[in-house]
Write a protein that binds this DNA or RNA. Sequence first.
DNA 1: TGTACAGAGTGCCGTATATT
DNA 2: AATATACGGCACTCTGTACA
Length: 359
Amino acid sequence: MEVNPLESTKLANRAFGEENRARLLADYFSEVGDVGPETAWMHVYKLLLSIDRTIGLAHCYESDKCQPGRPWYARSLAFHDWVSGALGVAPSELGTEIDWLFKRASADLASYALRAGHSEKVRQQRRPYQGRAFPEPGDDPELMSIVLDGLRPWLNSMPPATAQRVLAERIMAYLTHENKRKNLIGEGFEDTLAAILRRVPGISDAYTIHTRAMLHNLPGFHRGPVNEKPRQVDLALVRKSDQQRTLITAKWSVRADREEQFMSDFRDYARVNFGGEAFRYVLVTNEFDAARLVRACDRRAENSLLLTDVVHVNPNGPKVAYADVSPASKNKCVDMRRHIESRRLSSLDDWLQRLVSDH
DNA sequence: TGTACAGAGTGCCGTATATT
DNA sequence: AATATACGGCACTCTGTACA
């Protein structure tokens, strides 16, 4: 396929886009090689787990509920402790081990922005005002006075204006980039799972792996009414031996207002499923809230369970978080434990192993 | 080339529920 | 009944993509 140079630079500018994510994941996994089912969760966390800056701990719940003194602070501490241990690093070093994908994409974004800031176009735009000491992009006197006033006793000279500008830009990038994380984690989670599925020995031999495939391009689904928008599936596996289909919805977290999607998506899928074969419908998630996990496990469509499998990146996380049970959440916690013991709520490890052995 | 749109996660914050 | 905790709706920020 021909790629014209203009087009390819444009694509390269989408730091969080599909192409760059794929490039970054290929880069990460080139050092890893094959992925054993039991290590899959570590790669998910190294790539995607992040530190909640407001508390300095691994992020496992909405930040307002994680503040010191609130119930999820204790759970965040417990999770942080467990996950550092499991990844073999000191709690103080966890931050450097995780969040790989975002750190890399974010660095790419910054360098694209830097390049754009020094482009010929920018020079042209500023040309009419040359020589009039117009503010440079990134100048932020208020921010700099906070920094410099705070450090005044230890400074023996004033940093030059360019150094101040660079510092201000870095601080602003640090603050604003955080908001972009969610844009990466959505499809990034799907891509990460797909990358792992492709590298677990036995799986790609036995299944065709589709990311964000159009539903009607998967075997056994037809296109649906013309006036209806064609449906996409986060992730799908088609077993080569008998064309058994597994539709996967990947959600890093599951908020209540998104839970409804499970049912509506399922109905949309079922409506265009032809032939007698049932498809499998699987949730893969990193949700930590026991109630949300239990609801996903128990949810029914007509007379049977809606989700064939509910898979958690590593259920030990929520288990550890809920180790000291506050009275208010005791029941939910018991239910969650029951689902984990019975494997209704299974680990990524278990699920991958079952895929290998079920081929 | 610019604009609208859909879709992601989740922060904010009022309300409901559970426990004492 | 009072208090602590959980739930849940809305809105926000930001992205990539489709379309005019």
